[in-house]
């Protein structure tokens, strides 16, 4: 994983890859908010949202297989959705021999549909935007500089720190470390403590290196440029379409 890309990024030159990051970020967040605000009984609306996400993914030339493979991130969250129909109250129906709560089934469907659409939208955004651009976008969206600066350092040193943790795990294992119970966790915890000290000391060295290269306490801007008006219009067309669907869904609520 190189420093400027991340696990979900897919290299490309599509219109979506070239779009201004702040537009993509704003459009994604607004789209997800519209999806979350849609009543779950309006089944057709979620179909429309899925078509919209698929169309944007096609515009970005992302293969459906890549999208599907990355959607498995969501699997752990579905445990809660599975649990709801079993413990839910109210009216019950029999589904293949199991007595399930109707209210619980609706809740589970809502979580499943909205959660999947949310993850899919986030994946399309992340797949077409490298890390520096995401940081530019956040800065253009007026996030405080302290936060974008911390995030910038964090993503730059993430691989270093994660790899350091992995090397320590390998070193423990090669010395026969195979703990099975919580009271055997001391070695893992000592590694985490060492990892903190090494991270902190690396932070001190990075700071000194920056000072010796003329750092005066203010970071240069990430160099983000304003997006053109038509760029905003194209990006916001997606949440606007979704909002139209959402409004119709409320209108025709059964």
């Amino acid at each position: 994983m190189a420093a400027h890309v991340h696990a979900l990024y897919v290299h490309g030159t599509s219109p979506l890859h070239r779009a201004a990051p702040q537009c993509k970020l704003a459009a994604t967040v607004l789209f997800v908010l519209v999806v979350v605000a849609t009543p779950r009984e309006a089944l057709w609306a979620f179909g429309a949202y899925a078509v919209l996400v698929a169309a944007v993914a096609a515009l970005a030339r992302l293969s459906p297989a890549v999208l599907a493979r990355r959607l498995v991130i969501e699997l752990p969250f579905l445990a809660f959705a599975v649990f709801l129909p079993m413990v839910g109250g109210g009216e019950r129906v029999d589904v293949v021999g199991l007595s399930l709560s109707v209210a619980g089934l609706w809740a589970a469907w809502g979580i499943l549909a909205k959660g999947t659409l949310g993850v899919a939208a986030a994946i399309v955004m992340a797949a077409t935007t490298p890390i520096p651009e995401i940081l530019h976008g956040l800065e253009r969206l007026r996030l405080p500089r302290v936060i974008t600066a911390i995030a910038g350092f964090m993503v730059r040193y993430l691989d270093v720190t994660v790899e350091e943790a992995r090397r320590m795990a390998i070193a423990r294992q090669s010395r026969g470390h195979d703990p099975r119970w919580l009271w055997q966790a001391r070695a893992t915890a000592a590694s985490a403590g060492t990892l903190f000290i090494r991270s902190f000391e690396r932070g001190e060295r990075v700071h000194l290196a920056m000072v010796s290269r003329g750092y005066d306490g203010t970071l240069p801007s990430f160099g983000a440029t304003a997006a053109a008006r038509d760029e905003w219009a194209w990006a916001l067309a997606v949440p606007a379409l979704a909002a139209t669907v959402g409004t119709l869904a409320w209108w025709w609520l059964p």
Binding site: V146, A149, I150, A151, G152, F153, M154, R156, Y157, L158, V160, T161, V162, E164, A165, A169, P179, R180, W181, L182, Q184, A185, T188, A189, S191, A192, L195, F196, S199, F200, R202, G203, E204, V206, H207, M210, L219
Partner: peptide
């Protein structure tokens, strides 16, 4: 800020560190 960024990277890495439970 470099220290804070490295601390954030540490929090991220520590969330990937598995410890034994039972």
């Amino acid at each position: 800020i470099p220290l804070a960024g490295l601390t954030a990277a540490f929090v991220f890495a520590v969330q990937m560190l598995n410890f034994p439970v039972a």
